[in-house]
Design a protein around this nucleic acid. Sequence first.
DNA 1: ACTGGATCCTGACTGC
DNA 2: TGCAGTCAGGATCCAG
Length: 285
Amino acid sequence: MPELPEVEVICRGLAPNLVGRKIISASFSNEKMRLPLPNRQISKLVIGREITLVRRLAKFILLDMDSSASLVIHLGMTGRLNFFPAATAAAKHDHARWLLDNGLELRFNDTRRFGSIQVLEPGANPLEVFGELGPDPFWPEFNADYLAGRAKGRTVPVKNFLMDYNVVTGIGNIYASEILHTSRINPATPAGQLRALEWQKIITNSRLVLEAAIACGGTTISDYVNSRGEKGYFQTRLQVYGREGEACPTCRKAIRQVRLGGRASFYCPSCQPEPGGGKTTRKRR
DNA sequence: ACTGGATCCTGACTGC
DNA sequence: TGCAGTCAGGATCCAG
């Protein structure tokens, strides 16, 4: 699943191929997606319209149309967007195809169907499409005061706090582990226990880690490729994610894996000591 | 209001 | 080779 850097890279790859193009027609598989397809809105506000801008909001990809509506795509865990000549046979799990006025088709392929396709109508309340979104990590609203305020009294592990998109958007399971390792903060630390200095480290490192990942074209783990079918190579730069038992790049101690909020979490027990010297539940098996 | 766990779905991988 | 079990980038729903 693409996190913020992957979605950003995909948007940048899509833009030159989409801006100024007109969508001639659309076709869809009959498979049920996470959300029902907005067929009526697509016919009315997307088909026959020109794409004026491609942009990212949180992990959503927005294709702004000259109808002032936006086609909103979320990739979920396994979603991909690629261009194919219209005559190319559809692949398994191709759930949406948009024919462009240059003979290419933009295709949305999503094995697990956790992705979604929505339409943001002109003048509609964005809340209905996006829900309650926290700030983007690159926005000035993502600051230590804001985080300390949101975390006040919360006992949830800081890693899960950072993955909560009501708090901040775009940080997923991989980068949450990476950001906390760079910040030398144990992922199980209750969010409400962090001090202003630690929040500041998290903010600074979020931006550094995410920017570096964008510059590398994102992280590739099995499914993810960008819109030109190229894999990112940030996975070679991951410090802890997926590296249980390997040496921490900073101190050479063995990296550990624990489950927090049901998600695999990786940290260095030496660089990121347990909060208050306590113990985290070790990974089973 | 918060929290952790289950859930949606397919496919890859592991161990027996 | 086959089968069962586990796990995977996200987000939502539910019970406690």
